[in-house]
Each structure stands twice: as C-alpha cells, then as structure tokens.
Design a protein around this nucleic acid. Structure first.
Length: 341
DNA sequence: AAATCCGACAACCGCATCGGA
DNA sequence: TTCCGATGCGGTTGTCGGATT
C-alpha cells in the first residue's frame, strides 16, 4: 500500500513541469487569475490545469506576467534609487522594490549582482563595505549625473550636476516626471522580454532591452524620502525641506546604463579611478571632498556619513582600515593621508 | 565559421514568517 | 498554545544570446 502511495506521489512529481514557461502556460495562468484573482497559489496550481507548483505560478505571475510590470533597462533615477536604498537597507530586495513601481525584487536583485557587484569586484572591495558605499555615493552617483548630461538631449539643470546636488536635490523642485526605458509593447500579453523564449510554439513579438518609448508610467516615488540623515547622522542631510532629494524631473527619461566605476578586470586602477579620487580628497584634508560637497559648510552633507574632523567634514567611513588598505594597494606609502584620516 | 566566454535574466530552492484551525 | 499549510523573501543556479577569440 505504501508502495502504491509512493509511486502515485512520484507520478505526480514526474508530471510537474519545470523550467521555462510556455505561452500556453502563461495564458492558462493569466486566464485563471483574471477569473479568480491572485493568491491561493497552491489551489491555483491544482485547479488551473497547470503542471506547476503554486510557488512557481506565483513567481511567474509576480515577476513576469503581472500587468504593471515595467520592463526594459532601469532608468538612471531607478538606478540611483536602488543604490541609495541598498545602502540604507542592504539586501532587502522586496522592500527596495516597493519603492520602484513596476520593478520586481528579482529584477533589482539581478541588477545588483550583475552590475553593482561587478564594480565592487573590479575595485577589489566588498560591495557591502563602507568604502564601496562611499564610492557609490561620491563617485558613481555624480558620474551618473554627469554622463546623463553629456549623453542626453534632455534638459538637465546644470546646477544638478554639482555633486552636492546629487544628494540634496538642489536646483529643482519640480515634481517627478516619468519616462525612460520603458517599453509598453513588452507588457505580458503583448510581447515578451529580452530572454523570454517559449520552448513550445514560441511567439514572442518584441525584444525590449534598451528600447524606449513614451508610454505612460506610474509615478516614480519622490526622492525626497531618501534622506540619509537617519542612517548617517546629522551631517548626512541638508538643511531645510527638499533636502536629500534627487531631482527626478531632471533625471526622468534619460537612458543610461553601464557606467563604469572603476577599471576593467585585469587593470590595476588606471587613470581617474575611484581610488585616485579618494586619494585626492583625502590628501587635501578633505579639500576635494569639500568641493564635492558644494564648497563648504553650506552643503556639507552630500556624500553620506560625515564626521567633523580637524575643522572639516569627512565621511566617517573613510577613516576605516578597509579604506586605507585599499588605497595603500594603489598608492603605496608615499602618499600621506591628510586630515588625520 | 566555430568555439568559448560572459552578461543578463528567468526560474528554482530552502528557509522564515504569517495566519487560521 | 501548537500545528500546519500558504505565502514571502533572499540566495543560487540554469539557460540563452551576444561578444570575443
């Protein structure tokens, strides 16, 4: 008897499909959800005719089929938002995804692993280290904005390009505007994304990566909620309302991807790398840092955790052994770390 | 032109948490 | 209070296509 039960169970297990979803499966799933709504995934799996687990159905729906899923490359403001929120919350992908309408935790997680962690590897630092966090704040984000201005026909408030404004949002109080690399044709049901290919009767209509359109999008959350003050203390936020805000209006719709934070694999810190930048900042007692920050006391808050040291504000984490070690690899001992860093 | 490498993304797996019986 | 199924989350793997050699 037990053997019979076991074999039945095995039979069931054998019937369960795995791997890529077919168009028919997607249709089944979408139709079922259209009739019965989301949730109760195990019931759905049993009753819909799909030979999938409830888990698999849920994942397919949430990560791919759900109508409000936004596909295509992450926009610059989305990238900035991810960088910021990750520095705040770490690998809380789901939580981060809640602040990027239409983006899934899976997508954000993949972005982090394929793009951001790659940069960290190239810099030989841990992506979760304070050094890398500061690198992102002080180097990646400003360059993101610079590249946006350099490569885009969009009007970007020049004031925004001052690194200080990366964090403070000075220069514009415009409401968020949407646009960027969203392709409305790639929504489930009308087309499929970059890698989607059905093993049976494939009928993908469009490839979406990198494409752009002016499709209407749900609002991108206001960056003003991204104040760093709660994490980094009193020096991490600017004074007054609007502080800590990226200007998503100015950033909106700009297509940018693949920013390099550092050297390619095999190179050992070529010209103009993050560490050169860090070096110049530190060796001048925070001078370069202060430039980055907007010239002094008025805006001493743009690069994350700031401590007052020797009359100047410097990022707290710059005084870590980790940073010194990283810098030493590049610089040897012939540079002095200024400002007591 | 073929082989190999690599990046990107979809999907799976294991564990944690939640909520109802 | 405990148990158990459902759901959610994060880490990891598999697969595909483009780029490079």
């Amino acid at each position: 008897m037990a053997a019979v039960t076991s074999s039945k169970h095995e039979e069931e297990m054998m019937e369960l499909r795995r791997g890529p979803w077919t168009l028919e499966e997607d249709n089944l799933l979408m139709n079922y959800i259209a009739c019965h709504g989301e949730g109760r995934w195990n019931l759905l799996a049993r009753c819909s005719g799909l030979k999938r687990t409830g888990k698999s159905c849920r994942l397919r729906w949430l990560n791919y089929l759900k109508p409000d899923i936004k596909r295509g490359n992450l926009t610059p403001e989305e990238q900035l938002l991810i960088l910021e929120l990750h520095s705040k919350w770490g690998n809380r992908w789901s939580r981060i995804a809640q602040h990027l309408p239409g983006r899934t935790d899976n997508e954000i997680k993949n972005y982090w692993r394929t793009r951001v962690q790659k940069q960290a590897r190239q810099l030989r630092v841990d992506a979760n280290s304070a050094v890398f966090r500061d690198a992102v704040r002080c180097y990646w984000m400003p360059r993101l904005l610079e590249k946006m201005a350099a490569t885009s026909a969009h009007q970007v408030d020049p004031a925004l390009l001052h690194p200080a404004h990366v964090a403070t949002g000075l220069g514009s109080a415009s409401p968020p505007v949407h646009g960027g690399q969203h392709d409305a044709t790639s929504a489930p049901g009308s087309g499929y994304g970059h890698h989607q290919s059905y093993p049976v009767d494939p009928s993908p209509s469009t490839s979406t990566s990198g494409s752009t359109s002016a499709a209407a999008l749900p609002p991108v959350p206001c960056f003003s909620e991204l104040s760093w003050v709660d994490q980094y203390g009193p020096y991490a936020d600017l004074d007054g309302p609007g502080a800590g805000a990226f200007d998503s209006a100015a950033l909106g719709g700009l297509g940018l991807d693949g920013l390099d934070l550092g050297p390619a694999d095999g190179d050992v810190y070529p010209d103009s790398t993050l560490l050169d930048y860090l070096n110049s900042a530190c060796c001048t007692g925070g001078g370069a840092m202060m430039t980055m920050m907007g010239g002094g006391n008025g805006a001493h808050s743009t690069c994350g955790a700031m401590d007052e040291y020797d009359g100047a504000y410097v990022p707290s984490s710059w005084r870590t052994d980790e940073l010194c070690q990283a810098a030493a690899r590049k610089l040897g001992d012939h540079h002095q770390w200024g400002g007591g860093i």
